[in-house]
Design a protein around this nucleic acid. Structure first.
Lengths: 192, 192
DNA sequence: AATAAAAGAATAAACATTCATTTTTTATGG
DNA sequence: CCATAAAAAATGAATGTTTATTCTTTTATT
């Protein structure tokens, strides 16, 4: 087990508290004082780790996004077929978000709000490069529709965010069957 | 031309200002004072039309959502085939959001945040009943995959929100070709 | 003993909401 | 059609809280 320096423990608690509060109350109702309290830390301590609230939310977003994509591609190998590669990555993405609903939901929420700075968002998107490469390979091989990355993303990856929200709200329980159906729908929408 | 009572004019200006500010700064950075200024109205006037900020955002959401669905189904007829009916409604939804990007983006933003009250969200969802009926018809006729409404929505309608956001941010311009491609992808994901 | 990390209390600005007046609209009687 | 009084709508300024952030002191680490 890795031993964390004290400071890393506190920082992690702050990140976790931020995600939780933003998820459940919204950014507007997640004051620094509450975040500090939830992380068992003094408000002043936050400013040892983050410049200000905006910097905090940006850092949290970038970290979670990077972790998410790293997880999704962890077991990916270049010699997989496009279809197998896509399925693998898609399922890892789903797994990441379902195994840590809070982080998954946080990412969803960040997709649509002006909460995150433009630069941070762009940096978050950069992480997706391996997926875009995979799609390009698929397009070259005539397996995937020759569409803009935006369209491919919108129809194959983005829908997960909706399902996750419904799941977290309790409107809808994502079962294994649903997950399989969802994967089929994702693939059907982008395959040639 | 319908003549509006003075009050309806002011209320409409407030709604518009709210949508604009929430879209561009986020709920947390849309103070009542700014909303009032943008609507050319005194802050106190807001409270003649809305109970408080939360009530305001809920009302705005419900109104826009109702208008959106009404528009989408305006030209719908029960005697259309499932496929034609779906295409019609899908395209009307896209048209509504593209013709009024601000409202369209506002709706997208509302899908993922705890900004809107649970009850208001549920009321907004109720409007979609005709679409769910259409899907059920399609399922009964073996034209549409027998999936949960949540899945059908996630893959066929929800992706528009992503495209609209990218469009509004300037990352991506939705052309007619894109729109056709998007419709094809939407249909491919839900058709049997 | 020196340095770094953390804390609680203090500060100043921003905020949602209300209050006391003023302006505008509506209704009424000549 | 007008004058005017009552009612409604709208306002700017005030209120009391809440907020992000900083300051000074205390505690922990080196």
């Amino acid at each position: 087990m890795t031993v964390l320096k004290k400071s890393e423990v506190k920082r992690a608690a702050l990140v976790k508290a931020t995600i939780n509060l933003v998820n459940n109350q919204g950014f507007h109702a997640a004051p620094m004082s509450k975040i500090a309290k939830m992380a068992n830390v003094s408000p002043a301590t936050i400013y040892l780790y983050f410049e200000n609230k905006q910097d905090m939310i940006n850092q949290v977003y970038k970290e979670v996004k990077a972790e998410y994509v790293a997880f999704a591609f962890e077991t990916f190998k270049d010699d997989l077929s496009v279809e197998d590669g896509f399925e693998l990555v898609w399922r890892r993405m789903a797994k990441y978000k379902l195994d840590d609903i809070e982080k998954g939901f946080f990412l969803s929420q960040c997709e649509n709000t002006p909460m995150i700075d433009v630069e941070s968002r762009q940096e978050g998107v950069k992480n997706l490069a391996p997926l875009l490469d995979l799609w390009d390979r698929g397009i070259a091989q005539d397996i995937i529709k020759p569409l803009s990355h935006h369209l491919l993303y919108a129809f194959s990856i983005y829908p997960l965010a909706f399902l996750l929200n419904a799941h977290k709200r309790g409107d809808f329980k994502i079962t294994n069957t649903h997950l399989n159906d969802a994967y089929q729908a994702a693939w059907a929408s982008i395959k040639k």
